[in-house]
Computed example of a mutant assay.
Amino acid sequence: MGTTRIKVIDLSSSQKEIKTSRKHARLAPPAEDEVRLRRLAERAEKLAGVPKLEKEEKEKRHQKPQATDERLASSAADENLVVTEHAEGDAENIEPESAIPAKSPLSKVAGKKKSARRRGSNYEKAKMLVEDKLYSAQEAFELLPKTSFVKFDPSVEIHVAVSEKSIRGAVSFPYFTDEKKVKRYLVFADKKPQTDVKNVIFANEKTIEDLESGKLKPGKDFDTVVAGPKFMPSLTKVAKILGPRGMMPNPKNGTVTDNFEKFLQDSASASTQFKSDPSSPVVHIKIGKLSQKPEELSQNMKAIILAIGHSKIKKAQITSTMGPAIRVDTASL
């Protein structure tokens, strides 16, 4: 038969474990009495030390505020005083901390948010030439070349603040120098109108299906949609396609009409279309180049003012590319 091994471990003794068997069982001396006496002595020492510990904790509690007060006072004194050495290194100057500006990350973030857009030195010099007043049209266009600092022939723009949000129309500038953009029309009519205008697509009910399927695309195949009042209920099906591109027919801009010949003739002769900004009631439009004569620019400005209407205009200002704005009195035109 095989032998079984038993491990005997005495946790209270420092001796290593002793391996024994049935044949020879060598056990370490138990010393049970010594272990019991040692445990009793440890308990007695613990019980005797409880009041001492309580006294020490009470003393520490009374001493802690004093220590903390002393530490706070010393740290405050160190923080309030900054020692700086002279260049010679012989004497020391003491300065209050309030004299040193405090820098915190929050102040940096706030400073970044409040910082305005920085302009170049050339712009600042040009802006100093413009007074804070209303200029007549003649004075404004005479001052405009002096405020330009670019090396190319800049464009001249007018920014008109209007009283209505949805303003759009077309204007023909008498002295506009840019090439006219070829316009393409989509006309919903019962009969094909007689006109000499080119790039006209005559549409009917079946054309709405082509718009829905994507065979006809706004901006790619046509730029303006004109419709008779009869077709407006059917065009509501494609309002999601035409509306975001600003091509949905609207009586305000004259694209809902029965007189197609007159609309096409007037629109084709007009060089530029304008509309107010979607985010604010302001019309931005280019009226020419700075190389043009002031009289020509003044006549172009007069044409856009008349197209919008004096009653709808709150204020206007002109500017060249990258130049400062000049406020203009529209009544002087």
Rank of each mutant, 00 (worst) to 15 (best):
L235W: 00
S98F: 08
A203V: 03
S166T: 02
S291L: 04
E124T: 12
S269D: 03
I208L: 06
P30W: 12
L235F: 00
I167M: 04
G214A: 02
K146F: 06
A325H: 08
K302W: 05
K113H: 13
K16P: 12
P174R: 03
E124S: 10
E85D: 14
A25N: 12
P251T: 03
E79K: 13
V225E: 01
G288H: 11
D178T: 07
P154S: 01
Y185A: 01
K108R: 08
Q138S: 10
K146C: 05
K127W: 03
K127P: 03
F149W: 05
K112N: 13
R61K: 13
T20S: 12
Q194W: 09
K198C: 10
V130G: 01
Q66K: 11
L211P: 00
A44L: 12
A116P: 10
K125G: 06
N93S: 10
V35I: 15
S14L: 11
E212L: 15
G169I: 04
K103H: 09
L333S: 07
K52W: 10
K198Y: 08
T321W: 07
A303C: 06
K52P: 14
T321K: 05
S291A: 04
A325S: 09
L81A: 11
V35D: 13
A161L: 11
R71C: 08
R71G: 06
V238E: 02
A25T: 10
P65A: 08
P105A: 05
S279F: 15
K192H: 09
Q265A: 07
G323A: 04
A239K: 09
E179T: 12
F263I: 02
Q317M: 11
P233V: 04
A270H: 01
D178W: 11
V226L: 04
N204S: 06
S107K: 15
G2W: 14
K220W: 06
D258G: 04
D178I: 07
K181T: 12
P218G: 05
T236W: 08
D78R: 13
P65E: 09
D69H: 10
F152S: 04
K220L: 09
L211W: 01
P229D: 02
R26F: 10
F202A: 00
Q194V: 10
K237V: 02
A77G: 07
K302Q: 06
S21L: 06
K302M: 06
M248E: 01
D210S: 08
G111V: 05
A325C: 09
D196P: 02
K183S: 03
L47Q: 03
M322H: 03
K108T: 09
F260P: 01
V156H: 01
E34P: 10
T330V: 13
I94K: 13
S172I: 12
S279M: 15
K113D: 07
G169P: 02
K112E: 15
K237T: 02
P244M: 05
A316C: 05
E124K: 14
F141T: 05
F274H: 00
A76L: 08
D10Y: 07
F152Q: 04
Q194Y: 09
E97H: 09
L186P: 00
Q299C: 06
L264H: 02
P96F: 11
R168A: 03
I9C: 04
I208E: 02
T224D: 01
V283L: 08
S14K: 13
S213M: 07
